[in-house]
């Protein structure tokens, strides 16, 4: 569905009031990956890492500086309009609906922009009304919708023309727990039922854990991880943390097989691999222990470590 080969994007940024200093930024550096039809994958990275730039190149908004891209068999930057009919896109913080009009009017307009045949449009809409529960606000002007309702509207707008591939940029940002769950359920549903390939960028690791089987991580323009979440945990999640409370503040403990990550008064954080009980025994031997706790790495922690450059 998506084939990316050595894809790069270089921007010339100019600094100073009147753009005197030129300054080259490699927003995306020679990344390569493939996405098969029907995958649901997450695209992760800190702000400014190159996520949006990649998505813009995949959707045909930006022209790559180097490398090869093929989306649904098309070169996005050359065949933008043809591609646009076959993909859907939703940018969480931007409104593509008509602000002052009832939600359903936006759908009508998009139907004509995408030239969706009437019968197909009506079946599609009926389905989304049901799955996303749009009926209570279908005739409400978009400006009066809650964020959650609006996002449901935006998702429908992105899916009305029946795209094979859906790009989502931060689809759950700012949503409450219930609304988030609804969006996630919807994505799983269209992915499983219709085989729509979904690529989503997010900062919300809950999205990743619940939705994606595969994860791409980009940082400073380079792809630093491409693989299953389980593998990621195995690889980066090997270390656990032992939090110990000592009777009184002490210098960092010196124990073989563990290293002190942080000291806060009498509390210390030790990173270790292997058995927790062995380590506990060693700690107890070298200091007076009051309390302890073992922390398992969660995905947030893992991602933090990846960003921090622990490879």
């Amino acid at each position: 569905m998506i084939e990316v080969d050595g894809l790069s994007k270089r921007f010339v940024v100019r600094h100073g009031r009147f753009r005197r200093e030129r300054h080259v930024v490699d927003a995306v550096k020679e990344i390569s990956f493939r996405v098969e039809r029907g995958e649901l994958l997450g695209y992760l990275g800190p702000n400014g890492a190159g996520k949006s730039t990649t998505i813009k190149m995949l959707t045909g908004i930006l022209v790559p500086s180097a490398g090869r891209v093929s989306v649904a068999g098309l070169d996005p930057s050359r065949r933008r309009i043809e591609l646009a009919r076959r993909i859907g896109a939703m940018f969480g913080q931007r409104v593509q609906l008509w602000w002052d009009l009832p939600l359903v009017d936006s759908f009508e307009l998009l139907r004509h922009i995408y030239k969706v045949p009437a019968d197909r449009y009506h079946t599609q809409l009926a389905r989304f009304r049901d799955v996303l529960d749009l009926d209570p606000f279908l005739h409400t002007p978009v400006r009066q919708l809650s964020l959650g309702q609006r996002i449901r509207g935006e998702l429908t707008a992105a899916m009305l023309h029946g795209p094979e591939l859906l790009f989502l940029d931060e689809p759950t940002i700012g949503l409450d727990v219930v609304a988030k769950q609804r969006v996630r359920d919807f994505l799983v549903e269209i992915n499983r039922q219709e085989g729509v390939t979904v690529l989503l960028t997010t900062h919300d690791l809950g999205d990743i854990e619940r939705l994606c089987s595969r994860l791409l991580v980009i940082d400073h323009g380079s792809l630093i991880w491409d693989g299953a979440i389980a593998q990621l945990k195995e690889r980066y999640g090997g270390e656990r943390t032992l939090v110990v409370d000592l009777e009184e503040p002490a210098p960092p403990l010196d124990i073989a097989g563990a290293r002190v990550e942080k000291v806060d008064g009498p509390r210390q954080w030790l990173r270790f691999r292997g058995s927790a009980s062995e380590l506990t025994a060693q700690v107890a031997a070298s200091a007076r222990l009051v309390d302890l706790q073992v922390q398992e790495p969660d995905i947030e922690e893992i991602v933090r470590r990846i960003y921090a450059g622990e490879r």
Partner: peptide, 14 residues
């Protein structure tokens, strides 16, 4: 500035 021009670029129209 606010990126809404990008939305026009992902639609199948000029």
């Amino acid at each position: 500035r606010d990126g809404n021009f990008d939305i026009l670029l992902v639609r199948p129209r000029g």
